[in-house]
Simulated scan of single mutants.
Amino acid sequence: MSAPARSTRARIGLAILTATIVGIVVAATGATEAALADGRSIDLALLHLRLTYNSGVAFSLGAGLPVGVVLTATVLIIAGVATYAWRSTPTTPMPGRIGLAAILAGALSNLLDRATDGVVTDYVHTGWFPTFNLADTLITLGAVVLILTALREPKGSSTG
C-alpha cells in the first residue's frame, strides 16, 4: 500500500474511532442523566454516580464566564488538537492513535453536552476528587496513552 493510501486509511480510522466513541459517551451520559434525574445516587463502592452540572471547564474553572466564551475557547482548543491528530496520525503508532481518538472523543462529547444547555453533565463522584464524567476520563486516559506512546518511541524518530 502506498504512503498516501496508508495516511488516508489511518486518518479515516481515527475519524471512525473518534465518532464511535463520541456516540458511546453521548448515549452513556444520556442514560446516566435519565437514571439520576430524580436526585438519586448510585453507590458503586469506590465511586458514586451523582448528577451535577458544570458551567465551567476542568474543576469548574471559568464557571462565571458567558457560555459563548467557554464554547468558543473549547472549539478553538479542539480544533488545535484535531489538527495535530490529523497531521500526526499517519506516523503515530496504533496506541497513540487510540489515545488521540480518546482525547478528541472526550473533548467533542463535552462540547456537544455543553452546546445543548451551557453546562457539562458530570456524574462520577469519588468523595475526594471533583465530580467528573466519562468524557473527562477519556481525555485523561488518552493523554496518558499518548505520553506513554511517545516515551516508547525510538530515539530520533518523529510523529509528524
Rank of each mutant, 00 (worst) to 15 (best):
L44Y: 06
A45N: 08
A45W: 04
L46T: 01
L46A: 10
L46C: 04
L47P: 01
L47V: 14
L47Q: 02
H48R: 14
H48D: 14
H48P: 03
H48A: 12
L49Y: 01
L49Q: 03
R50Q: 13
L51P: 11
L51Q: 11
L51F: 02
T52W: 08
T52V: 15
Y53R: 15
Y53P: 01
N54W: 06
N54D: 11
N54S: 09
S55N: 13
G56I: 08
G56N: 08
G56F: 01
V57Y: 02
V57G: 10
V57H: 00
A58I: 01
F59I: 02
F59P: 01
F59E: 03
S60E: 04
L61Y: 13
L61M: 14
G62D: 01
G62P: 06
G62I: 12
G62F: 03
A63D: 12
A63Q: 14
A63N: 10
G64I: 06
L65D: 14
L65C: 03
P66L: 00
P66W: 08
V67M: 13
V67A: 15
G68T: 07
G68S: 05
V69A: 14
V69Q: 12
V70I: 15
V70D: 02
L71M: 10
L71A: 04
L71E: 01
T72C: 11
A73E: 01
T74V: 02
T74H: 13
V75R: 05
V75N: 07
L76F: 13
L76W: 09
L76I: 15
L76K: 01
I77L: 15
I78W: 00
I78F: 07
A79F: 02
A79I: 07
G80S: 00
G80W: 11
V81I: 15
V81A: 09
A82V: 12
A85E: 04
W86L: 12
W86C: 04
W86R: 03
W86S: 06
R87D: 00
R87W: 14
R87M: 13
S88Y: 00
T89L: 02
T89P: 00
P90V: 01
T91Y: 00
T92C: 12
P93K: 14
P93I: 14
P93Q: 14
M94W: 13
P95G: 09
P95R: 09
P95E: 06
I98E: 05
I98P: 05
I98C: 04
G99W: 09
G99I: 06
L100E: 06
L100S: 12
L100R: 07
A102E: 05
A102W: 10
I103P: 06
I103Q: 11
I103S: 08
I103K: 07
L104Y: 10
L104G: 00
A105L: 12
A105I: 13
G106E: 02
G106P: 02
A107F: 13
L108T: 04
S109Y: 12
S109Q: 11
L111H: 03
L112A: 15
L112T: 11
D113M: 04
D113H: 11
A115K: 04
T116N: 08
V119D: 13
V119W: 08
T121V: 15
Y123K: 08
V124P: 05
H125S: 15
T126Y: 08
G127V: 10
G127H: 04
G127F: 03
W128H: 11
W128A: 12
W128P: 05
W128S: 09
F129Q: 10
